[in-house]
Simulated assay, not measured.
Amino acid sequence: MDQLMVALPQEMPVGTVITLIGSAGDQHVTLEDLADRLGTIPYEVATSLSVRLPRYLVD
């Protein structure tokens, strides 16, 4: 399934962009950060992302 639930610290309006991996403003979330929170390794996080998820190459 291509769904997940995320617990946010506060209520957000519909349409708010939430970054799970990457950069937003001065904050950065890496695969390593996410893997640590999930108790796994970055490779497992990266390979578990669905092929239907759009990818963007940013220089």
Rank of each mutant, 00 (worst) to 15 (best):
P42H: 09
L57W: 13
Q27F: 08
G25W: 13
V14W: 11
G25L: 12
H28Q: 07
V51N: 03
A24R: 15
L53N: 07
V51I: 10
A46L: 06
D2T: 03
V58H: 10
I18Q: 11
A7Q: 14
I21F: 12
L57P: 01
I41L: 01
V29G: 02
G25R: 12
M12N: 11
H28C: 05
D36P: 02
I21P: 09
T16P: 11
A7T: 13
V58E: 14
R52H: 10
I18H: 11
V51A: 06
L34Y: 08
T40W: 01
I41C: 00
Y56R: 12
L57H: 08
G25M: 15
Y56C: 04
L49Y: 04
E32N: 06
S48R: 02
L31R: 00
M1H: 05
E44K: 01
L57Q: 09
V17E: 11
M1S: 08
I18D: 09
T19F: 10
L53M: 11
Q10G: 07
D2A: 03
D26Y: 12
L49P: 01
L53A: 09
I18S: 09
T19S: 12
I21V: 15
V51P: 01
S23Q: 15
V45L: 04
V6D: 01
E44S: 00
I21L: 15
H28P: 00
D33P: 05
Y56V: 13
L49E: 04
T19C: 15
A35Y: 06
D2W: 03
Q10P: 02
L31G: 01
M1K: 04
S23P: 11
G25N: 12
P42M: 08
I18E: 07
V29N: 05
A7D: 09
I18N: 07
I18Y: 15
I18A: 13
I41F: 04
E11G: 08
T47V: 02
G22P: 12
S23G: 13
E11D: 14
Q10F: 14
A7K: 13
T40V: 00
V58G: 03
M1V: 03
M12S: 14
V29F: 05
E44I: 00
L8A: 14
H28R: 09
V29Q: 11
G22L: 14
T19G: 04
Y56S: 05
Q3G: 10
I18W: 13
D36F: 07
L38E: 00
T30R: 12
I21Q: 11
T30K: 11
P9A: 10
T19P: 07
S23L: 11
Y43G: 00
L34G: 01
V45K: 03
M12Y: 15
R55H: 07
V17M: 13
A46H: 06
Q3Y: 14
E11A: 15
V6W: 02
